[in-house]
């Protein structure tokens, strides 16, 4: 019964991602009900800084260091994790609904013949530690409340901003290095190189605030306006498929059914008509603002605040107003 709650710690260049702290914070809340210990699972190499940042957020840190674990490949992570999972049989294993989580978790779950729920937006446990989750289906038109069977671990990937990050004064994790030997010849995939996306902005799935423009922006050069607004808000910039198909923005910025689902605290849409395909990607955003010249644009049906107006006037004014207000 005293099996642990595990969280896969994701990191980028030594820095642990926000989603990991969110998941650990959530897990600590669960542990208050179940009495279970919370462990962060950290894989890679050169992990000192990452380890340090995790200490106040967990009871244990399992540290799997090996140069073959950096950068991530599902092969190497799987080989390293499976023996550990089999040995410890954690009760719950959570990861972010990120490119890593979604790549790795199905593979582990298939091997362990256990339950896995992707893309969860709400999680709770009962005293026995049984996990109940909610997740969107059909791109968010319906949600399913789902419960796990007896098989362990109960695995789930979780969307950003599902839990709040909470400081845990006094908590200090025990660091447990796990000797990890990997046979390079058994690892088939190799990452040749990572082509970093330009700019220091977070990916739209991770950002707290996302500002986006659709075809109403008229041309790629005008995205400068949106970039300026994003600068003031420390936001990331998203867009619609129509814009990506025009070649004005990169595919990685596309929000919606065939792009990314975002869960931002604030989403602002400028010159976006609100086709269902787009809307399906923003369903779990907290506050939505829409600006469009067409009073009948469907986007207004989904927004919290709407302005019928010309984005070429509104966006610069908004940037100035925010500069003024946020400075004071």
């Amino acid at each position: 019964m005293a099996k642990e709650i595990w969280v896969l710690a994701e990191h980028q260049e030594g820095k642990v991602k926000g989603i990991t702290f969110e998941l650990l914070s959530g897990s600590i809340e669960f542990s208050k009900q179940t009495g279970q210990k919370v462990a962060a699972i950290l894989l890679g190499s050169g992990l000192e800084e990452a380890t340090k940042s995790l200490i106040p957020f967990a009871d244990k840190i399992y540290l799997l260091e090996n140069p073959l674990l950096s950068p991530y490949t599902s092969d190497a992570y799987e080989s390293a994790l499976l023996p550990l999972l089999k040995e410890h049989e954690p009760s719950i294993f959570l990861g972010g609904a990120t490119s890593t989580g979604k790549d790795l978790f199905p593979r582990l779950a298939m091997h362990l013949e256990t339950g896995y729920a992707p893309d969860c937006t709400e999680l709770s446990v009962n005293e026995e530690g049984r996990l109940t989750i909610k997740r969107p289906l059909f791109g968010g038109k319906v949600f399913a409340e789902m419960v796990f069977s007896e098989a362990r671990p109960q695995m789930a990937t979780v969307r950003n901003h599902t839990f709040l990050i909470r400081e845990n004064p006094g908590r200090s994790a025990e660091v447990l290095p796990i000797p990890t030997r990997l046979d390079p010849s058994s690892l088939k995939k190799r990452v040749i190189h990572l082509e970093k996306s330009p700019g220091a902005r977070l990916d739209i799935t991770e950002a707290d605030i996302v500002v986006a423009a659709g075809r109403g922006i008229k041309g790629p050069e005008n995205f400068k306006l949106i970039e300026d607004l994003a600068e003031v808000l420390n936001a990331s910039v998203g867009t619609t498929r129509a814009v990506v198909d025009e070649g004005w923005r990169d595919l990685k910025d596309q929000i919606g059914k065939s792009g990314k689902n975002i869960s931002a605290r604030l989403y602002m849409a400028f010159g976006i008509s609100g086709a269902i395909h787009h809307i399906l990607g923003i369903g779990t955003c907290k506050t939505i603002v829409a600006v469009d010249t067409d009073p009948n644009a469907l986007i207004f049906n989904y927004a919290d605040y709407g302005i019928v107006g010309d984005l070429f006037k509104i966006v610069p004014a908004l940037t100035e107003e925010l500069k003024r207000v946020l400075a004071s």
């Binding site: 995939k189 190189h193 990572l194 990916d203």
Partner: peptide, 13 residues
């Protein structure tokens, strides 16, 4: 493959 901070180029048998 697309990842959060860019694009990964991989080889795979």
């Amino acid at each position: 493959r697309e990842v959060e901070n860019g694009k990964e180029h991989l080889t795979c048998p």
